[in-house]
Design a protein around this nucleic acid. Structure first.
Lengths: 182, 182
DNA sequence: CTTACCATGTAAGGCGTTACATGATTCA
DNA sequence: TGAATCATGTAACGCCTTACATGGTAAG
């Protein structure tokens, strides 16, 4: 237990909450996890097959719906694997912001360009923040329904805190460039 | 100009400030850029060769020092390439925090484990923040010496803002878990 | 003299995305 | 009936890291 593929752990984590299809796993990623993790079908489906072959998950066909669904569940061993991973210290938290890269080299362009990148970043954050705030409200309201909500709420709060810090920075950065620039 | 390898752009950006060896490029990454970008020798050296073969940079051997240094410079075309990239909108800002992943699935473990991850995260941030604050002080003092400092300062300020937000979140998260937990 | 740092590069392999390929079902 | 969404998968390829391989130099 040292070099786990993160995709395996994310999937097992989601399966530990409920049974899911590959499609649903992708959806969870694109909604609740997307603020700090992402994955594509091209990594999810192969990972699912792999988890089954390693005995960490099982697959069964859905009989109820008319769709050709493959439903995945976590196994006992999968649970053990997940819990083990959760006890191991975090290896790496990574941030790759192209916006900051372009800003860092801003001197090669005009101030206007730098401002454009900052504004684009600001707009993106302003558009996403309401979803986080809404999620916070909903989660706070049903905190007692599911113990897992507590942890979900913490990650949402993280997103809100940082997004608000981003927006503050955007304001300051714009002011700084407009005052000092030109 | 649509699918530029970011590593090329970072290197060209650094070379636009000054001539550098591959080793020095790596060092710049590990100090000034590491808060929002990273790269290893295994990607830097091949990229440098590639940039030379594409006419975006030139390489010459160092004659002054006794070391076997390969010094790289940006070409006119390299400058054009860089500036072009800087005008293109940002494609992706990515955050991959394993800490949040482990926290999200925190229900599978004890509250204690979640707290451990938060504390480890907090310590890491507390250790790095002073460097950012020091960099801010230095940059503010010599802002007029080099126009590029202005942009460098902005990225440092971004780091400070977010790190401070992280620390606030850590405090709240710890309190939240200790109050609600157990 | 030996440790730390300077300095360059390659090879193997991992991990993941994009694009492709296909088709069913639901809803307006 | 057509668009949106549900649903599963593969293949090619890109990009990067890790580990390996090697050796010089400066400082204590």
């Amino acid at each position: 237990m040292a070099n786990e593929r993160k995709i395996d752990c994310v999937i097992l984590g989601l399966l530990s909450h409920e049974e899911l299809t590959g499609y649903e796993i992708k959806k969870r990623m694109d909604t609740t996890l997307k603020y700090f993790w992402s994955a594509s079908y091209g990594s999810i489906y192969p990972a699912l097959s792999d988890l089954v072959s390693r005995g960490l998950a099982t697959k069964r066909e859905d009989t109820e719906s008319k769709r050709n669904k493959q439903i995945y569940s976590i196994t006992e061993e999968g649970c053990r694997y997940l819990r083990e991973w959760l006890t191991v210290p975090v290896e790496k938290d990574e941030l790759r912001y192209e916006t900051l890269l372009k800003l860092f080299f801003g001197n090669e362009q005009e101030t206007k360009q730098a401002l454009t990148h900052i504004k684009a970043f600001e707009e993106k954050i302003e558009k996403e923040l309401p979803y986080l705030l809404e999620a916070e409200k909903v989660l706070k309201a049903c905190l007692n329904e599911d113990a897992a909500h507590k942890y979900y709420l913490l990650t949402v709060k993280f997103g809100i805190k940082t997004y608000q810090a981003y927006l503050e920075w955007c304001e300051e950065a714009k002011k700084f460039l407009m005052d000092s620039g030109a």
